[in-house]
Simulated assay, not measured.
Amino acid sequence: MLQLDHAFDEVVDAIAERGIGIFPAFLDSSRIEALRRDFAALPSWQLTPAGIGREQAHHTNERIRTDKTRWLEGDSPAQRDYQALMAGLQLQVNRQLFMGLKDYECHYALYQAGDFYKKHLDAFRGRGNRRLTTVVYLNDAWQADDGGELLVYPEKGKEVLHRVRPEAGTLVCFLSEQFPHEVLPARRERLSIAGWFRVDDPVAPTVLL
């Protein structure tokens, strides 16, 4: 637990100082393997083309994103363990940063060769209830020429702030309203868990998924 508390403190410090942090080896090898096995056991029909928009405005658009997703609903020990880990992070963030995070939602995201997600925001300022984005990668031995990097941009400007290789165990965590980002086309299968800590907010009609 002490090791986890230290990891959570590093995330809290990064969010407080810069609004974003990248943490290699956040997930240990046993959790990574358990989540991989959990994903591999899912029937293919449970993976659905990812969409954009919320509620009535939700739709698919292959010009913007081509990945497939499956929400984690606590259906397996691996999913429940991951959700418990994120609950611990939520507790620490609320305790130290007073963000008022209420719950956490997340899904597996599968990018097959050629898949991408164009530049977007996870929440528009003042119009959504997602406050903190997390992405955890589950890809073993990812090489530079495998593509699929996450590019993170500043709130204003076109320069790339961070280029993240999707290596197993790495966590990326950032303020959802502040950092536009995109996923470059992958050249091999790419697996991650994307998630969002949320607050109570009735105004959430146009948030991008």
Results as ranks from 00 to 15, higher is better:
residue 202 P to W: 05
residue 204 A to K: 14
residue 50 A to G: 12
residue 41 A to Q: 14
residue 194 A to T: 10
residue 77 P to H: 01
residue 48 T to L: 09
residue 191 L to V: 08
residue 141 A to D: 10
residue 43 P to K: 15
residue 119 K to M: 04
residue 48 T to H: 07
residue 84 A to Q: 10
residue 18 R to H: 10
residue 86 M to V: 06
residue 165 R to F: 03
residue 39 F to Q: 02
residue 15 I to N: 08
residue 52 I to Y: 10
residue 201 D to E: 12
residue 51 G to T: 02
residue 192 S to P: 08
residue 24 P to T: 02
residue 179 F to N: 07
residue 151 L to W: 03
residue 5 D to T: 09
residue 67 D to H: 03
residue 150 L to K: 13
residue 205 P to A: 04
residue 31 R to P: 08
residue 57 A to Y: 12
residue 6 H to I: 11
residue 59 H to P: 02
residue 93 V to K: 14
residue 118 K to Y: 11
residue 129 N to T: 14
residue 54 R to E: 15
residue 93 V to Q: 14
residue 145 D to K: 04
residue 3 Q to K: 01
residue 144 A to Y: 07
residue 75 D to K: 15
residue 102 K to A: 00
residue 86 M to N: 04
residue 46 Q to Y: 10
residue 45 W to E: 12
residue 43 P to C: 04
residue 88 G to Q: 07
residue 9 D to C: 03
residue 128 G to Y: 15
residue 22 I to Q: 05
residue 38 D to N: 13
residue 147 G to A: 04
residue 159 E to V: 01
residue 73 E to Q: 02
residue 115 D to E: 00
residue 45 W to K: 15
residue 62 E to D: 08
residue 121 L to N: 03
residue 130 R to S: 00
residue 132 L to M: 13
residue 134 T to D: 14
residue 165 R to Y: 04
residue 154 P to A: 08
residue 139 N to E: 11
residue 108 Y to H: 04
residue 206 T to P: 00
residue 201 D to Q: 10
residue 25 A to G: 05
residue 142 W to C: 00
residue 75 D to M: 05
residue 80 R to H: 01
residue 34 A to Y: 09
residue 106 C to P: 14
residue 192 S to Q: 06
residue 169 G to C: 00
residue 190 R to Q: 01
residue 130 R to H: 11
residue 181 H to I: 11
residue 30 S to R: 11
residue 17 E to H: 11
residue 202 P to D: 09
residue 198 R to Q: 04
residue 208 L to M: 13
residue 147 G to E: 02
residue 202 P to R: 05
residue 93 V to I: 14
residue 18 R to T: 11
residue 131 R to C: 02
residue 197 F to E: 02
residue 159 E to P: 00
residue 99 M to V: 12
residue 42 L to E: 05
residue 124 F to Q: 09
residue 20 I to V: 14
residue 81 D to Q: 15
residue 126 G to P: 08
residue 158 K to L: 09
residue 8 F to N: 14
residue 97 L to E: 09
residue 44 S to N: 02
residue 104 Y to V: 11
residue 189 E to D: 05
residue 40 A to K: 12
residue 89 L to A: 08
residue 20 I to T: 14
residue 12 V to D: 01
residue 70 R to K: 03
residue 91 L to K: 14
residue 174 F to H: 04
residue 84 A to K: 13
residue 170 T to W: 01
residue 50 A to Q: 13
residue 102 K to H: 06
residue 123 A to G: 06
residue 133 T to Y: 06
residue 74 G to D: 14
residue 74 G to E: 10
residue 176 S to M: 10
residue 99 M to G: 15
residue 113 A to S: 09
residue 185 P to V: 07
residue 88 G to N: 09
residue 146 D to Y: 06
residue 69 T to Q: 12
residue 196 W to H: 05
residue 92 Q to S: 13
residue 31 R to Q: 07
residue 40 A to V: 07
residue 111 Y to H: 01
residue 122 D to H: 00
residue 85 L to Q: 13
residue 58 H to Q: 15
residue 90 Q to V: 03
residue 86 M to L: 09
residue 34 A to N: 13
residue 67 D to Y: 04
residue 33 E to C: 02
residue 190 R to F: 01
residue 11 V to M: 13
residue 209 L to N: 06
residue 16 A to V: 12
residue 56 Q to G: 12
residue 4 L to A: 04
residue 202 P to I: 09
residue 63 R to N: 02
residue 39 F to H: 10
residue 105 E to M: 08
residue 62 E to Y: 13
residue 84 A to I: 07
residue 152 V to R: 02
residue 64 I to G: 01
residue 82 Y to T: 07
residue 23 F to C: 06
residue 70 R to W: 13
residue 163 R to C: 11
